[in-house]
Design a binder for these strands. Structure first.
Lengths: 342, 342
DNA sequence: AATTAGCACTCGGTGTCGTTGAGTGCTAAT
DNA sequence: ATTAGCACTCAACGACACCGAGTGCTAATT
């Protein structure tokens, strides 16, 4: 790839930044005004013309200004963006926003998503710690009435799920005892993803006692484990996307898309890198061709586990958003780790 | 109010139904085609003209067909709508949709909202059982590590909330004991809405022992009680609204509005009636002037407590949606009551 | 060789104008 | 009370001209 000279870089950066700011194609005069470059508009035009030829800029039509192409955004993000550190204000907002939820991992993730969506005016996606390294740490059975009990499940990374369970047979202390035996023997310490109805049935059958009365309890445990294992992805601030005029009528389609869980799971699956930036078509989904995705992993006690990120128009404020996402994921990872340590 | 003769009623009903179906203003010929009325278009025109004068119909402009006015919708809903019973198909869809969640009140509500949104292609709003009759029934403190514990709170109407809590001081059995004493004395049986930081401080101070170590626990309990008391309103299927062309650019504003919690709380506050239908401006919010709200209460063990409903364009299919909402709330009320009974 | 001034050219956006056609309102006949 | 007939209205649509921001090119300048 032919390297760009200094001035071309400067022009490319300015076009990107100006376009992000105003949303309008930027012309040669405007560009001189906002950079203070000491050359004439004709020179800028020549350079821009070359940048178009190289694929970094695009022209909506002959007599319009220039707009960054996908390649242009990519080059900007990789080489031209100045600030790689979060600025004071955003850091404060993040800190203040999630401080109230510091104790509880799940609330922390939820809050993190909300804060991020607010901050970036984009949609946020966040996933609670999960994956195969998530083990079942504790299960509690609390009798409520003769036929009702509440079940609580806690995983190794601090996710807590609870639900009521209605029994057909009375909840005797003997039943409780048997329940705990089964839990102790076959569930605790196992990955949440391995608990399912089939495996439980064999276990329940092997224990003597009233396996019929045990059934609803086991079913409920499976249900809890399942819902924990496929830890739901939280979508926040999706209505923010409607505010971006470049989506127009596509907004409906995009929101539709984001509300389906399968593709979103795929979107969040990151590569090896700690932070992943996918611009426009770099996303594999047609529905995201005008969007950019920025997702970062956070780790709890050293394991890579959860993900937090944003989805917004390709014309998003990368310079501000990327450091924010990076900072937020780091912080969330630290806080959860801290909440869980002995 | 001057009563309408039979034919005028028939015409009004037909205009409403046709407009709901097509979204286009309906003209006199079209109306004859779709009703099979044995009169000429001129007669229909005369009648429609009077219906406009009486305020039941509106004319977007002189040479266009007629559109129901707010008053027209109201008259239709109150007097003309045929089916007041849910039809077989919708009933089945609802039954199938929420059966999987029957055991647990909170999941039931969530699911009910999802099902309703799917069914009606509108946004759904649903509120878990709540209000002043919601008492705190049980609080459990389960030690997890030396400095961490999980807290679980259960209310009289089956809402379960849990969170982790990190302590500054080690969690001794003495501390647990003191905690349960306080809970027993000052929390159990109280309405969730009455538990707050101020009231807890006086209680904690009056108990001897290490009130400093108790602080995080009490704070967490308050937090749980608070989040339970103002039981969050769930908004489902909001992206459905984008599919309705009549909203157009207003859709963004509407979604914005729906995502604020204060006004939504107000929207859901019903009167004395079991089901409330508010059409267009009958809603007190300007943002809902082109929308209708249908909300119904469900009762748990006889108390009026929760609410489920839909928000959609005034041009919604009342004939199908109203019975569905009514059926769903009844069902949810019965299922929760059943899940809670001894 | 790079830069610049000057200028003709392009083309989306906007406003005007006439045409079209669905649907009405009115009048006179039934 | 109903209906046939007819003139009228007005949004929607396409054609057309105009404007102006911004370009590309050429020739002059450094």
């Amino acid at each position: 790839m032919a390297e760009l000279n200094e001035r071309k870089k400067q022009i490319l950066a300015a076009v990107v930044e100006q376009f992000i700011k105003t949303g309008e194609p930027v012309g040669s005069k405007e560009l001189i005004a906002c950079t203070g470059l000491k050359v004439s508009s004709a020179t800028v035009r020549n350079d821009m013309s070359e940048l178009v030829a190289l694929g970094y800029l695009e022209q909506p039509h002959t007599s319009a200004g220039r707009v960054p192409s996908q390649k242009g955004y990519r080059y900007y993000v990789d080489h031209l963006m100045k600030s790689r550190e979060i600025d004071e204000l955003n850091r404060r907002l993040i800190d203040a926003g999630i401080s109230s939820a510091a104790g509880d991992p799940e609330r922390l993730i939820t809050r993190a998503g909300e804060v991020l969506a607010d901050l970036t005016k984009c949609a946020s996606i966040s996933k609670a710690p999960g994956g195969d390294s998530m083990l079942i740490r504790k299960i509690e059975l609390v009798p409520i009435g003769i036929h009702t009990a509440m079940l609580v499940l806690l995983t190794s990374n601090g996710i807590l799920k609870s639900r009521l369970c209605r029994l057909d047979a009375p909840l005797t202390s003997k039943l409780c005892e048997e329940f705990y035996n089964i839990v102790q023997a076959a569930i605790l310490g196992k990955p949440a993803s391995e608990i399912n109805v089939a495996s439980m049935q064999t276990v329940a059958a092997s224990v003597d006692g009233d396996s019929f009365a045990m059934l609803p309890l086991m079913a409920a445990v499976c249900e809890l484990a399942r819902s924990t294992a496929q830890s739901r992805i939280l979508l926040g601030g999706s209505s923010n996307l409607l505010g971006h005029k470049e989506y127009g009528a596509q907004a409906a389609e995009l929101l539709e898309f984001l509300n389906k869980s399968e593709p979103i799971t795929e979107v969040m699956r990151g590569g090896a890198r700690p932070i992943e930036i996918r611009i426009g078509r770099e996303n594999l989904y047609r529905q995201l061709e005008n969007s950019s995705v920025i997702v970062a992993k956070y780790s709890v006690s050293g394991d890579d586990t959860g993900t937090i990120g944003v989805i917004g128009p390709t014309r998003m404020d990368y310079e501000r958003i990327i450091p924010s996402v990076r900072y937020l994921t780091d912080l969330v990872g630290r806080l959860i780790t801290q909440a869980l340590e002995e």
